[in-house]
Amino acid sequence: MSGSEIFLQQLIIGLSNGMIIALIALGYTMVYGIIELINFAHGDLFMLGSFAALTVVGLLGLDHLAAGAPGMWSGLFLMLLIVPLFCGSLNWLADRFAYRHLRDSTKLAPLVSAIGLSFVFMNIGLLWGGVPMNVFGLGRSAASPKDFPALVSNVNLLGQSAVEFTTKDLMVFVITLPLMVLLTWFVKGTRAGKAMRAVAQDRVAARLMGIPVDRVIGQTFLIGGALAGVASVVSSVYNNTIYFQMGYRAGVDAFTAAVFGGIGSLPGAVLGGLVIGLARAMCDQYLETRWTNVLVFTVLILVLVFRPQGLLGARAKEKV
């Protein structure tokens, strides 16, 4: 591969992973926009979604089929229904039973609570990996990474070109892009979205206007969680491996993306996700893989210290 081809290839990989990070970042930014909580458990919610997806694969027996077989697409579709529902409900429950009671306490209380929940989720992921199912690799340790079967084939859509844009890359964009458009429409164009923006702007005033604040916040958690669920299906199918500690890294990447783009801003989260995805891919190629995490954290710290409002911070007033 020539230099420019390598660059193009990393660009494609970076954008695909960036779209996945962006989906997770949207969940962070929505929740932060509405109650100013860094939902620390969000990354681990994403991890649990991956385990749910693998469980669905096992229950449907999809791991026995060859990649790209006709049953795969309906299986993928089914996963895209079940897993977001699972993650969304879980996130809603977290709000209902943990964060809702802490609305009037100090700002650190819900954050600490979210850190606790992240540990609970991670532990559930560890135990889940030990469930006696074939897809979890029977007999191997519960903590070991699990192979996610290649549901979508790896055919290069660019024909004989050395640069690969595969069906998997296409799948990422086909699923994530419409979802982002849909979300933007929901927040800008519907009554429920308007209520969300109102609560984000001023909770007390929103309540006085008759908006059921707690229900709207619950909806935000539900939608943010569902987006993480979609991200976990897409990411599992794209990366073909899942493990119980992946939520922490994914969460930090996504949070960095959200902060980078300006936390609270939807387009900012997507932009940030793409930037972080690209930065990771380029660092893997042109620097060294082992320094990639240092790079991401350095970006995070520099942005927080020097431009805490983020790239699209000018629009920070228009939260959610």
């Binding site: 802490l102 209380a109 600490v112 609570s113 606790g116 929940l117 992240s118 532990n123």
Partner: peptide
């Protein structure tokens, strides 16, 4: 172990 630590944090906050 980590489930118990996590629950400890959540329940203490609550």
């Amino acid at each position: 172990k980590y489930m118990l630590y996590g629950l400890a944090l959540i329940l203490m906050m609550r």
